[in-house]
Nucleic acid binder design. Structure first.
Lengths: 331, 331
DNA sequence: CTGTTAGCGCTTTCAT
DNA sequence: ATGAAAGCGCTAACAG
């Protein structure tokens, strides 16, 4: 029954014969061509792998990651690829999993510089595209200019402020939270965190503020609750901040809650800014950096599947709303 | 170089030889065993497939789907499986994609009774577990008793009301929105929608209300904005509703917004209930059905990978908060 | 339009 | 502890 190749190329066989074959197959309980054998023979799996970092299941709870994945999913859907999420848990066998995954290309969602799966990604020898960072030899990169964007939004957020603060993403893979004045950007091993800190630092410098006096509160997760509690702590400390630049709208939303709970005015007492222009930004009328993680997901998937492994700069915009001081009020 | 099987069973080869082999491999640029060949030979792919319905990319924007996926991801992570999302777009080749996907088992996130991928899932001949429905011969099922839960929350939401309404999930695969009094539950081809409508209908009957007088507003998507606009329409119609039971907390949140915008009181003028006990429910102090979609994702994945294909009833609880009338106020 | 042939790269079993 | 042989199920290429 060699001619059962009515499956793969329906055009190559007469409709009648094809029908007979399919019918016989159904009668015999043949489940169709075996995917493993097919991909062995064809040399491709029809599948795009997505590496999501240690906290895989958190990825689904994070609005930003979800938007990015939706973008990747769009492309997979269009091109008939499946989308494999590689469960990276932080355990030793992560690299092995990446080695063993049947994927034609890889998309990597932001990792730390020292993440042990990065060598595995390179060793895999498949086209790979990293989102945001770290840049990887031989792999593509899609990112906005985080430093420039942070500088721009920092300028607006910190304008007229004397004691700025930053609500930061995690600094290292342990994702511990902390409050540190003048935390050096270089201390962050997540490129996104590092670049945004550097940009906020630039902005402070532009305004004649000393970075050492800028308090950096590092959140271990990207969510309102923790940002709320860290902000509450910040507000209780001597020299309470009068401007808070967050790295996400979710964090900013938490900050807004804490500030209101403390009976303070936004932006009069404390200016706040977010990042991403998510629904939360609209809800709280936050000044934010607008970027489309969905488009970036699209770009990553497309580049990976096409093997276009260059560096792509994604667009961003500064969106000023009422959570920060206007030039007049700041003056 | 037959002995390169230092990869699979490190125990079966001396450490020295193994090191030499790996070293040589690195020098020759050998990327490690080919996944397709490995899975062909071993007869398993190390991969769990998740079918997410027509609107794949929406899945990532939907809090409920995300929680479910996180649950699936947990299990995959633990057991060393990859997780393949099968992009089902509504096009003709969907079934082919499912046939061709290299997965050891399938988890299916709620589909309509007449979804064309269901036969493909059965033909695939791999263990499959459906979440919520439809029940599929030979496949497992994990679900709460949606009808009973709807009856329970309907009883609370509609208590003391004279003109109840329902904010419903889509009724058919076209996902069109509509406003129809007394929409027959049987008209819904999504089992979840059908069962919940039936439960709300039961609740109305229990309270001596005529289902024909219950307005059912069908939302095409599970999100606040659309629920808000449909609720606004409901409130403007003659015989404005005095109780609204929604099928999700997101929808309920939209309803709350519309009700407040109309200058009405909750629950005095209009009682509102949600579903899922998501963060939105806490935020708006919504009466809701508490269930853990994450645990259900866990259960589906575990059952699928273990080939335990029975029907499992997941737990749910009615959680009464201030968005519905208390027995006294209703009386 | 249909039949035949060869081999994708691995792992399992058996023999040494 | 290591080597050899066989074959997983398919499809691309070629011959009829």
């Amino acid at each position: 029954m060699t001619a059962s190749y009515s499956y793969g190329q329906p055009a190559r066989v007469s409709a009648r014969l094809r029908a007979r074959v399919l019918d016989a197959a159904a009668r015999l309980g043949y489940p169709g061509p075996d995917p493993a054998a097919r991909s062995l023979r064809r040399g491709q799996a029809g599948c795009l792998g997505v590496v999501l970092g240690e906290q895989l299941s958190y990825a689904f709870e994070d609005v930003q990651a979800a938007a990015f994945l939706a973008g990747v999913a769009d492309v997979c859907g269009e091109r008939g690829y499946a989308m494999t999420i590689l469960p990276v848990t932080g355990a030793d066998d992560d690299s092995m999993r990446i080695r063993v995954a049947a994927v034609d290309a890889l998309v990597i969602w932001t990792l730390a510089d020292d993440d042990p799966v990065l060598p595995a990604v390179q060793a895999r020898g498949r086209p790979a595209v990293v989102h945001s960072g770290p840049a990887l030899a031989g792999a593509g990169l899609v990112t906005i200019d985080n430093r420039a964007a942070a500088r721009a939004i920092g300028a607006v957020t910190f304008a007229g402020a004397r004691r700025p603060a930053v609500l930061s993403f995690p600094v290292g893979r342990d994702r511990s939270s902390s409050i540190t004045p003048g935390l050096p950007p270089a201390a962050a091993s997540f490129p996104v965190t590092r670049q945004r800190l550097a940009g906020f630092c630039d902005a402070a410098g532009d305004l004649g503020l000393d970075w050492a006096s800028v308090t950096v509160a590092v959140c271990s997760r990207n969510e309102r609750a923790e940002a709320d509690s860290l902000t509450t702590q910040l507000l209780r400390r001597p020299g309470r901040p009068d401007a808070i630049a967050a790295m996400s709208d979710e964090q900013a939303a938490g900050a807004v809650r804490a500030i209101r709970a403390a009976g303070l005015q936004i932006p009069g007492d404390v200016a706040v800014s977010g990042w991403d222009n998510s629904p939360a930004a609209a809800e709280f009328d936050l000044t934010t950096i607008a970027q489309s993680l969905r488009n970036q997901g699209n770009a990553c998937a497309t580049a990976a599947l096409d093997g276009r492994l260059g560096h792509q700069a994604a667009p961003w915009t500064l969106l000023c709303r009422s959570s920060t001081r206007t030039p007049e009020s700041a003056a």
